[in-house]
Design a protein around this nucleic acid. Structure first.
Lengths: 150, 150
DNA sequence: TACTAACAATTGCTAAAACAACTAATGTAC
DNA sequence: GTACATTAGTTGTTTTAGCAATTGTTAGTA
């Protein structure tokens, strides 16, 4: 067994602090624009928008966002309360809801999206396309490595 | 102003899901070994260990971990309740505590550290040293970019 | 058909995140 | 030295995270 030089490297901590900063920054920008959304509510809204035509279940949302089912239930509750999303009974399976955006939800998405894009752009700064490829490759690799780890 | 091709790239989301998977994986391993620590409690314990000699204030801990002061207060509360850390009055400033590890805290650190190293190793897999350099450079860059963003 | 397993979603619990408001101690300006 | 601002830490509230347990529905099997 080889001694992997990455053993003592705290990349975990670096990822953690970076995503925290990104989230704080995005939340500030959302608040400043009176968007009235948390970052996690935005993440769900974004996924709902992407699956506007087919509709999507809470479990599918949970899997895609790496949240658990109760967490998704509660965030959807909030989106519903704000009038941005609706639970529609699935016709062929009465256990399941298809979550859909309301018109207000679509408007909120359009209003929020440019802010998110600007935060992304600013965060990426002048890093290169080559950097982007490498970054995605590494993140995907780590994701798979820890997901397969029992 | 140039059109940055990274505008529509959701690296934010990729970082977010990856760190979530890492955290879930680490938490499972800690639970399996009956460590009785959450990931965030471990993060603070780790910082306390690194500043064993000088001691460290709650605000300093907050800054280093990108948590806010109330969050640190409550995590320290839990560590104190578990007998792993102590609040020592600072001699020259009665507002301030120096947080120090107890003997049990040091033992807990030694017990936990190998597990953390193993999770890191497994997560990194066979990515290269060159990858590591690039990864750190990009994360640091993003961190600075969003931190400076008003 | 009846029994059982699997599944979607919810509720309850504790921990953590972020904000606001607060207490107590320190520092600065007049 | 008094007045005011700043700083360290705490408490209260809402949201998110994760686990366990529960309800109601569907699927599989004897």
């Amino acid at each position: 067994m080889t001694t992997n030089p990455a053993d003592n490297r705290a990349y975990f901590f670096k990822i953690d602090t970076t995503i925290k900063k990104i989230r704080q920054n995005l939340q500030k920008k959302l608040d400043a624009s009176n968007i009235d959304l948390t970052v996690d509510q935005w993440v769900l809204l974004d996924h709902l928008k992407r699956h506007e035509t087919e509709g999507i279940s809470q479990n599918e949302l949970a899997e895609m966002t790496v949240k658990d089912a109760p967490t998704v239930t509660r965030i959807i509750d909030l989106l519903v309360k704000k009038g941005l999303a609706e639970r529609k009974m699935a016709v062929n399976d009465r256990r399941r809801f298809n979550i859909i955006l309301t018109d207000a939800g679509r408007e909120k998405f359009e209003e929020t999206y440019p802010i998110v894009v600007e935060v992304r752009r600013q965060g990426w700064g002048d890093l290169s396309d080559e950097d982007y490829k490498t970054f995605v490759r590494i993140l995907d690799s780590i994701y798979l490595n820890v997901s397969s780890g029992k």
